[in-house]
């Protein structure tokens, strides 16, 4: 019973309910949407890249920082891995190099933010520019399109005729595993602790700087994996690939109940937010809107959710303060009142 209550009170619940409501509303407006399970499944299948990138961003946000280089990091890895596969190099070598690149980018970001103590937005904005430029160097005006069929098919492979792909289940499993590590293990909880109160975390013996660097490295690795998946799903990489994903990732995290001030939220929330972000354009099509509404509606949803969240939290804070005050005053006069009653 307690566990159920806890789940219902979790911040991610709002996002999950919102996603469900979104599906139901679209289903009511256009019954064709829910009639075919493939439509809903496609929303999930299309969101794998977003989920990974949102979870990556969540790590940066947990520790109270931000990483706006995720889009370029994803794009660069996709370009490099894509080019290597196009040239017929060994798959595992290509994947290894891609993930290594993501790690290096994460290390550099972590060094700048945690060790040099540079505001993360500024530093990652700089690395974002550098990575984006490197990507132009790699791809140029051409496109990486000649990817092996097997590689392109791998991400849309489904077992037992299920509408959901194996790839989606893997991403789901990975997100669940990360959530488990973050909430159930000592080292996993370091991230939230550092984001909640870096000074306090340091005082109780948590290596704050090392944790922050590690968060950025994990973020970089996840971006690299997302980049490989992106190349596989999109089937082509241009110099614009991944552009603007950093904003969508932040939006997904915020939708999923992660506070940008750090220390609040979960990767599950980020994943749900990512599904919402990825589904909006498909859902709009089913509701009969043109895709022109896409970003305006995204903006309205994002602003509404954060404003409502901020107002609710402020009310809760005021109520808590009143409750504390009341408790303190009854503690003093409590004996008398109890006797009278």
């Amino acid at each position: 019973m307690n566990a159920v209550k806890k789940v219902l009170k979790a911040r991610e619940m709002t996002a999950l309910l919102f996603l469900a409501a979104l599906f139901v509303v679209v289903g009511i407006i256009n019954p064709a949407f829910l009639a075919d399970s493939k439509n809903v499944a496609n929303c999930f299948n299309d969101s794998v890249v977003y989920i990974l990138i949102a979870v990556a961003m969540a790590f940066a946000i947990f520790i109270g920082e931000i990483d706006v280089s995720v889009g370029s990091n994803l794009g660069l890895v996709a370009a490099v891995v894509g080019t290597m596969l196009q040239d017929g190099k060994n798959w595992f070598l290509a994947f290894f190099i891609g993930i290594l690149m993501g790690t290096v980018v994460g290390l550099i970001n972590g060094w700048g933010v945690a060790v040099m103590k540079i505001p993360s937005l500024i530093f990652t904005l700089g690395t974002n520019g550098i990575l984006r430029g490197l990507m132009y160097l790699q791809v140029g005006t051409k496109q990486v399109t000649d990817l092996p069929i097997g590689f392109k098919g791998a991400s849309s492979y489904a077992l037992f005729g299920l509408p959901l792909t194996v790839c989606f289940f893997c991403v789901l499993l990975a997100a669940a595993a990360i959530h488990g590590v973050l909430t159930r293990t000592k080292r996993g909880r370091y991230f939230i602790a550092v984001g909640d109160n870096a000074g306090g975390a340091e005082l109780v013996g948590i290596p704050a700087i090392r944790t922050k660097v590690l968060a950025y490295v994990i973020c970089g690795v996840l971006c690299a994996v997302a980049g490989i998946l992106f190349a596989s799903r999109a089937g082509q990489v241009t110099s614009q690939s991944g552009n603007g994903y950093e904003m969508k990732a932040v939006a997904a995290c915020v939708l999923g109940g992660i506070s940008l001030s750090g220390g609040v939220g979960s990767v599950v929330g980020a994943g749900i937010g990512a599904v919402i972000m990825a589904s909006i354009s498909a859902l709009l099509v089913f509701m009969g809107f043109s895709s022109n509404f896409d970003s305006a509606i995204t903006g309205v949803i994002l602003i509404t959710i954060v404003v409502v969240d901020a107002l609710v939290q402020r009310r809760a804070a005021v109520r808590n303060r009143h409750a504390r005050l009341a408790a303190r005053t009854t503690a003093r006069t409590g004996g008398k009142e109890a006797a009278e009653q």
Partner: peptide, 20 residues
């Protein structure tokens, strides 16, 4: 609300309104 989030939403919203 954090400025970053609001203006991020704003960039979606106003860019989208421009399209509309």
């Amino acid at each position: 609300v954090q400025a970053m989030v609001v203006t991020l939403g704003g960039s979606f919203l106003y860019g989208g309104l421009a399209l509309l």
